[in-house]
Nucleic acid binder design. Structure first.
Lengths: 186, 186
DNA sequence: GTCTATATATAGATAGAC
DNA sequence: GTCTATCTATATATAGAC
């Protein structure tokens, strides 16, 4: 399964650097040093590869979230932002959701479903942390958890795009920090 | 110039619905009822079309901004959000910058420059409005104009993506309204 | 300005040998 | 598992007729 895992890693990088239509089996094969036809042994179609990518991201998020179970709501939100920031730090990558959103209407239905599911999972995770955080006083009492979760996601995804345009990953961090300050009572 | 303008309109719609690599000369030609080869009379290459698209957006923004000269800083920001919201209302379109950001690394250099220029223009416009708005008390005194401008752009672009995923344009509006409330002292 | 015809490149995908 | 060879579809792009 070594080759399959390697192929997935390469695909993930390409996806976040050049978009879903911005890389091909050929690109992955080149980097892997095999022929593109060989890749069909692991992924019968590009849709198949696309689904594997999304599942991989979903599994990684689940694993990541499990590790943070003991942290405070505020710390969880901080870590969430840092997870996205680590994308920007790595060659100004943007997030997979931002990538798939663009050609969403042109994607196979199964991929559309898988992506929205992943987004829903993340939004619910944020919302849950925010509900407790608002109650505990980590965040402003006046906030609505649902709207705030959406705003956080938007700031992260939008922040990554700003970083790429401005060729400076710190822009993403300061943008999200500005929001974080606004969410806490000062 | 009628046909050229029509082609640009179709391209703009396709761009915001399916991404830059998500439509072809063929698609435009079909909708226009001509042959794809004929389009090369107006746009010698897809890069040429891409540049025309960006210039078109830039001109539209300039025109839009000029009309708002008399408004208060707060009203300007409100209008800025509404401009993006009108994208979401129209078949859950996302913004051109969000589209081009994804395949940015795969785009011709001239397009990259043109896009970042457009983004810079919008950011400077926001920043200028915010500097006055913060001074006038429209917005919180503690805000930094530059960071706030970035946060607003991120919320708009990210909000459009959320709307598409959640298949609900109002999500974009409530997300930005949540931010707007945070930016004003309440 | 628009057409037909064609060139060229590349994508995703399959068949079958090794 | 990986290869060669091949198929089909589609993209951008050009030449030249009308």
């Amino acid at each position: 399964m070594e080759t399959k895992a390697q192929a997935l890693e390469i695909a993930k990088t390409q996806l976040q650097l050049r978009g879903y239509n911005g890389f091909s089996f050929q690109d992955i094969a080149n980097e892997l040093g095999i022929k593109k036809a060989s890749l069909h042994y692991y992924f019968s179609s590009k849709e198949d590869l696309g689904l594997a990518l999304i599942e991989d991201y979903a599994a990684a998020f689940q694993q990541w979230a499990d590790k943070l179970a003991e942290l405070s709501p505020y710390e969880k939100i901080e870590k969430y932002i840092l997870m996205f920031y680590s994308f920007a730090q790595d060659n100004l990558k943007i997030c997979p959701a931002g990538v798939f959103c663009v050609d969403f209407n042109a994607l196979p239905v199964r991929m559309q479903k898988s992506i929205t599911e992943l987004q829903d999972t993340q939004r619910r995770w944020l919302e849950k942390a925010l509900i407790r955080g608002i109650k505990d006083g980590d965040f402003k009492k006046s906030l609505k958890a649902k709207d705030t979760a959406n705003l956080l996601i938007a700031a992260c995804q939008g922040g990554l795009q700003l970083a790429r345009f401005q060729d400076n990953c710190r822009v993403m961090k300061s943008t999200c920090q500005t929001l974080l300050d606004l969410l806490t009572d000062i």
